[in-house]
Amino acid sequence: MSDDAPPLPRQREPFSLTNLAIDALLIVVALLMLLPLILLIGNAFKTPQEMLAWPPNFLPQNPTGENFRAVLADTPLLRWLFNSLVFALLSTAAIVATSALAGYVLAKFTSRILDVIFVVILATAIVPFEVYMIPLYFQVQKLGLLNSIWGLLIGYLVMSFGIFLIRQNVKASIPDELIEAARIDGANEAWIFVRIILPLIRGPIGALAVLAFFQAWTAFTWPLIVSTTTESYTVEVGLALFQTGFTIDLGRLSAASALVLIPSVTVFVFLRRSFVQGVASSGLKD
């Protein structure tokens, strides 16, 4: 038996009652995890009368699209989705750019100063956003960027974990000799980074981009304090305040929620591998 074989489930096991029981259990757990989301989407298609049914129906009896029509007509949901999308895309671009460059430099250049810089970056990673968001709010206010996507962006320009992720990958996968050879051939440092390094770290950059996008897309507390006008809400804040503002029926709220969930769930299902890879690498501190 070879040593590099994946451990437990090596040999194909014959039919086993234990495995059948485990599968049954896992299916139940998986469905339970999905249940709240399924119920939410079911509610989105219920009529107001059916929402009041007791005991509640699992799935709508006479599905209606009325909730979706109403919520799109009566709330700036599309505007909020647009704000969130632009904010998340800009944040992803900023995080990927800063992380790729800084991660590469911190992986392949050695100097006392760079060590200190890396330690400082790691140290700030420990501090949660909530600790320093009040001073940051005043910075945004001074710049006159409250209620704008730029103001939101200021909180999400860099990600320490991103720098860490790229640094680990560059260290592990790109040999020093490759860079040395390019230097001997007369390539300058910027060219080496753009033409040699970047193509080699597309995988981790993809994983980081997915993480960064979802981080901004699901941000709540920061957008809640920076955006205070209906026009400037992100979709998370818009939805949360939408349900506090009026006494509206749950069917519409569910329809709005479903509209927000469907794109992100779809994206996740397609990008699951790079997502899981990104999250998983967070546990692998060297």
Partner: peptide, 29 residues
């Protein structure tokens, strides 16, 4: 243990999905 099972990807997706979805819609559910 069930990495080789046909449904392994489904288990992982289902368990991980709540970590990804937007918080506000999930909280509403």
């Amino acid at each position: 243990h069930r990495t080789r099972a046909r449904l392994a990807g489904f288990y992982e997706t289902a368990v991980f999905l709540p970590h990804v979805v937007s918080l506000v819609p999930a909280a509403m559910a």
